[in-house]
């Protein structure tokens, strides 16, 4: 798949703080790319540099082969941005605010298009109301509507579901998937790993201003996947001797469950642990194996960096 955004050796320095450190990244056309990272990792700075809100100290960013600094009109024309905060002019009406966003991109008012977006985002009934009167969730949706007002080819969503309820989060996910079906490339930063797990085609992890990993989500999940097996015991145990020899085995706090990390349920290793339990006269009622989540993988990678 062709790269739509190409980031080469980009660094951004604020005073003595290096917010981005030699970042290189390719975003493919039509994909949903989730950029994950802890607070202050550089996610928003990277998005800001691509969208023109800040200028990188070094390096090159290209959008469909256009340079974001020397050909900023061509690059920005293709991008819609939903920021993390709720920066809105509260005195303006919902409709006019969307029309303003569209106009900035050189497009004349298109009532049908804006009303369609407002309907999709359940804001149509509020179209003539002042933004001040909207709830936090509505303001979040309005920011998405404004970003879509000029029909962008690339959509940046910086923490789009931060602070919204579960129902609205699902609505936003649906909208993101719809945009993808329409061919829009989506770059998503999020704290909710579940969100990335649900939506992303590829995942990038950024920490301390450096991209530490970029993988297809499914590859990432399989490569870094660790299975965890839980053996529910019939009786409470107190640190049996066989546990001391195997660091992969631990006992849960209530002493009723053995936790086996990184042991495959089909491996001989599990069979030998089951044998050990039998030999020591430890009865169990249930064996359950689960895959670890993207969240576990993310935490492992960030903590080990």
């Amino acid at each position: 798949m062709k790269s739509q955004i190409s980031i080469e050796n980009v660094s951004k320095v604020f005073g003595t703080h290096k917010a981005l450190n030699n970042v290189s990244l390719e975003i493919k056309k039509g994909e949903i790319f989730a950029l994950l990272g802890p607070n202050g990792a550089g996610k928003t700075t990277l998005i800001s540099a691509i969208c023109g809100l800040c200028r990188q100290s070094t390096g090159t960013i290209k959008v469909n082969d256009f340079n974001t600094l020397s050909q900023y009109k061509e690059t920005r024309n293709q991008i819609g941005l939903v920021p993390q905060e709720l920066p809105l002019d509260g005195f303006e009406s919902v409709y006019n605010s969307c029309q303003f966003s569209r106009g900035l991109f050189g497009l004349k008012d298109n009532r049908d298009h804006i009303e369609k977006i407002l309907k999709t985002l359940s804001l149509f009934d509020k179209r003539d109301e002042q933004i001040f009167g909207l709830s936090g969730g509505m303001k979040r949706r309005l920011l998405i509507a404004k970003a879509l007002a000029h029909e962008p080819k690339i959509l940046f969503l910086d923490e789009p579901t931060a602070g919204v309820d579960v129902s609205l989060r699902r609505d936003i996910w649906r909208l993101i998937e719809d945009q993808k079906k329409m061919g829009v490339t989506i770059i998503l930063t999020t704290h909710y790993i579940e969100e990335a797990e649900q939506l992303a085609d590829r995942v990038g992890i950024i920490n301390k201003g450096e991209i530490i990993l970029v993988k297809e989500k499914t590859t990432l999940m399989s490569e870094f996947s660790k299975k965890t097996t839980f053996i529910r015991l019939s009786k409470k145990l107190k640190h049996p001797s066989f546990m001391k020899k195997n660091k992969k085995i631990s006992l849960t706090e209530n002493g009723m469950t053995l936790k086996l990390v990184g042991i495959n349920d089909t491996s001989n290793e599990l069979q030998s642990i089951v044998n050990l339990l039998s030999q020591n006269g430890i009865a169990f009622t249930e064996i359950n194996t689960v895959d670890n989540s993207l969240e576990d993988i993310f935490l492992d990678l960030v903590e080990t960096q």
Binding site: G52, L53, R76, N77, P87, L104, K146
Partner: peptide, 9 residues
């Protein structure tokens, strides 16, 4: 809200 003007062409 100035972000809109700054990120527009």
């Amino acid at each position: 809200s100035i972000f809109e003007v700054l990120s527009a062409p």
